[in-house]
Simulated assay, not measured.
Amino acid sequence: MSSIKIRSIEYKDNEAIALVIRSVLLEMGVPKIGTAYEDESLDKMYETYSKDNQMYFVLEEEGKIVGGAGIAPLKNEDITICELQKMYFLSEVRGKGVGFMMINTCLDFAKEQGFLKCYLETMPYMTAARKLYKKVGFQDLEKPVGNTGHYSCHAWMIKDL
């Protein structure tokens, strides 16, 4: 794991992270409609997250982008709630503790920005991801919060920061 590092996204990472996210979504059988797959921001992640109160982090292994995750204010919701967004990793790095490292990097950033809660949406069958989210303190919700546009995601979670 010493060759793995987490860093802020750079413009040059746009194409690589879009490819990682789309390939993981396809691998997991996630619908292309109503999920992150069709987000316009996917092809311009650097520009999307270059605003106040948000950041996207990439996971780099020996110079190759192998995953990432971001924090941004939750759309159409109280300004004290952020969203953990687009957290995906290639299969080659899963199970090595990188998800735990990444989520803590994101949550630390969220706290630094003054957010009080962190929300996320995922798929009910993504059991490994949901197990990680619960491990760091996320709790299940019965319905979505805000309006992310991801109407195909049917598992919602939130955590007090």
Rank of each mutant, 00 (worst) to 15 (best):
E112I: 11
D78W: 11
I9G: 06
L161N: 15
E121C: 07
D13K: 08
K143D: 10
P124D: 02
C82E: 04
L42M: 02
V24Y: 05
C106V: 02
K143I: 00
F57P: 05
C82T: 02
I33S: 15
M87W: 11
V136F: 14
M45Y: 10
S8Y: 11
A72Q: 14
V93S: 01
K86T: 03
E15S: 14
I21L: 09
I81S: 06
W156T: 01
D52M: 09
Y119E: 02
Q113S: 08
K111I: 13
A155C: 14
R22A: 10
E40R: 11
E10Q: 15
Y46P: 03
G29K: 00
P124Q: 02
M87Y: 12
S50C: 05
A155L: 07
E142P: 03
R7A: 07
N53M: 11
I103W: 00
T127R: 04
R22C: 08
R94S: 06
Y119I: 01
D108L: 12
W156Q: 04
A72I: 13
L161F: 14
S3I: 09
A69M: 12
P144V: 05
K96G: 09
G99C: 05
E60D: 08
Y37M: 13
I17G: 00
N147L: 11
E15F: 01
K135E: 13
L132G: 06
F115W: 06
T35G: 07
K117W: 14
K134T: 13
K117L: 12
A129K: 08
C118P: 08
K32E: 13
A155P: 04
E83Y: 00
L84M: 14
P31H: 04
F138A: 01
M157H: 08
E40G: 12
